[in-house]
């Protein structure tokens, strides 16, 4: 088997016995997470508030200090020493976009390319070739006319599309999205989810935290349900409703017991 073939069979992201340093009500936020995300998969991570779904996503990007266990991205371990290499195939979307509100849409997009330049180079701004690529990306997402507007003047959905352009400019293989549609209106939710679906179709691995079971089963192939820092379900996204009912029943019982 040659290098490329082996590569295409190896998993995109592996979490093995991941325990976070941070705690919530006396247990680690992530309390022994095991999961494997294949390349080219569209995965939705679901769970109740405080279950640890955003933390799980953040651990994949190396944004969450771990107490034990390890995360592999494309076979590279995510540790403080290997962050640069491990993050190389990754891009991430945040709830609300995580843009710099005072910078223009184009400058925000170009921020996704900062790693390709030294601090001294970026002090003098980005080269025209990069600006052209940034503009093309904004155009692909229907945002070309807003390229020079500060992003704080844009709507939530428009901001998320700029954030997607910023993520895409580094040509990632894996896109992590932390509640990318929370707070958006119905039209914007559809637009953003459709973009994610298109990216998935073009071969990108998508891992997204969602709140909406309907969206998860419509767009994702696989669902991961997290409860109290552990994976309680990992399988097809079509059964998510039943699995969630079971989870909610359990929580209800506990509430009654108290």
């Amino acid at each position: 088997m040659n290098e490329i073939d082996r590569d295409s069979f190896s998993p995109g992201i592996v979490c093995h016995q991941v325990v976070s340093q941070a705690k919530i009500s006396n247990r680690p936020v992530l309390d022994g997470i095991n999961c494997e995300i294949k390349r080219g998969e569209f995965v939705a991570i679901l769970g109740l508030n405080g279950a640890g779904k955003s933390s799980l996503l953040r651990s994949m990007a190396g944004l969450l200090p771990l107490k034990s266990g390890h995360v592999l991205v494309n076979n590279v371990s995510v540790t403080p020493d290997t962050l640069r290499q491990a993050r190389q195939p990754l891009a991430m979307l945040f709830q609300g976009g995580g843009l710099i509100p005072q910078l223009s849409a184009l400058d925000n997009v170009l921020c996704g390319r900062l790693s390709a330049f030294s601090g001294w180079q970026t002090l003098q701004g980005f080269p025209p070739s990069e600006r052209r690529i940034g503009l093309e990306l904004l155009d692909r997402l229907g945002m070309a006319e807003f390229a020079n507007q500060p992003t704080r003047q844009l709507s939530g959905g428009q901001q998320q599309r700029v954030a997607i352009a910023r993520a895409l400019i580094k040509s990632p293989q894996i896109l992590l999205a932390d509640e990318p549609v929370t707070g958006l209106d119905i039209l914007a939710i559809q637009q953003v989810m459709q973009i994610l679906a298109d990216l998935h179709r073009s071969g990108m691995t998508i891992v997204t935290v969602l709140h909406d079971l309907g969206l998860a089963s419509t767009y994702a192939q696989t669902g991961i349900i997290v409860d109290r820092g552990r994976v309680v379900y990992h399988g097809t996204s079509q059964n998510l409703g039943q699995e969630f009912d079971r989870l909610c029943d359990k929580v209800d019982h506990q509430l009654i017991k108290y």
Binding site: A61, G62, L63, R84, R87, Q88, L90, A91, M92, F94, Q95, G96, G97, G98, L99, I100, P101, C111, G112, R113, L114, S115, A163, R166, A167, K170, L176
Partner: peptide, 10 residues
């Protein structure tokens, strides 16, 4: 989030 986004992008 805005700072984390830049961190992840390297």
């Amino acid at each position: 989030y805005s700072l984390e986004a830049l961190k992840v992008s390297g």
